[in-house]
Write a protein that binds this DNA or RNA. Structure first.
Lengths: 139, 139
DNA sequence: ATAGCATATGCAATTAAATTGCATATGCTA
DNA sequence: TAGCATATGCAATTTAATTGCATATGCTAT
């Protein structure tokens, strides 16, 4: 995914700091979501643990990143598809969580409509498929 | 949901202890899933924190309970629909996570089939709808 | 019914994760 | 570039989860 961190920050009225830029760069590197612990491993030398927490939180609040919880309750972050804008920010695609390498992919597949029982009103629906990803299948 | 804790334990070759029975009773009380912290609050006086962890883990391994992670990465547990047997234990129904009271419901709705991209093989699919539940809507 | 064994429990101690407060550093605006 | 708002890093604290071990308890075979 090609992004312009500096511009993205400006668009969201966030100060341009090297830590914030680094986080965005790191996350944008891959199409798969990256877990908070992995980010910490990669950036731990350059960015304080607490700062990383705070940056991830602001990004999520601003709708720059979205957070996907994996089966272990670990937070994973991804800059999602270009169809996500501020006004219309729907993470309404299917995620794929590989049970071998634990990577989370954002699939370009629409979340199917689900009929709610009487009384329940759904705002968003999240679907996650668990299985083996293309890379692990190739091995 | 009506269950017979003692029998359920026997079926799974688990020793019948009062702690294990209490946990099952507590979880079976409601159709909604209960979170680990809530269980701890309710049973904390009778059951040691560590024991509770261990009981929940064994139950999950044995397929007696299934674990649903909520948006905060908190584990929630439910005895799922009667269609879940040992041999064929599929939690393949939709969950509903209320964003007001945070309760998680197991809806009697089948998870829709999702077409996977080339290379990905899905074992299970989990769908969670977020919104307002019947109780909160009624208020 | 009970002896003996496997294992579940509770407690203490440890490890790991997340949060908070505050002083300093940095980016942005006028 | 001065001044202000706020982001960062560090220390300290709080909270959560894990591990090891002694004791207690349930289950099987006698």
């Amino acid at each position: 995914m090609i992004i312009d961190p500096v511009n993205l920050l400006k668009e969201h009225d966030l100060k341009n700091t090297k830590q914030r830029v680094r986080v965005l760069e790191e996350i944008a590197l891959d199409t798969v979501a990256i877990s908070q612990p992995d980010l910490e491993k990669k950036l731990g030398k350059e960015i304080d643990r607490v700062t990383l927490y705070r940056i991830l939180n602001t990004y999520e609040e601003k709708g720059i990143l979205h957070r996907i919880m994996d089966m272990n309750g670990t937070a994973n972050y991804a800059i999602c598809s270009s169809s996500c804008s501020e006004a219309h920010h729907h993470d309404e695609h299917v995620h794929f969580n590989c049970t071998k390498c634990f990577k989370i992919y954002c699939l370009e597949v629409e979340v199917p409509r689900i009929k709610m029982p009487k009384g329940f009103t759904a705002k968003t629906v999240s679907s996650t498929a668990y299985g083996i990803c293309e890379k692990c299948n190739a091995i």
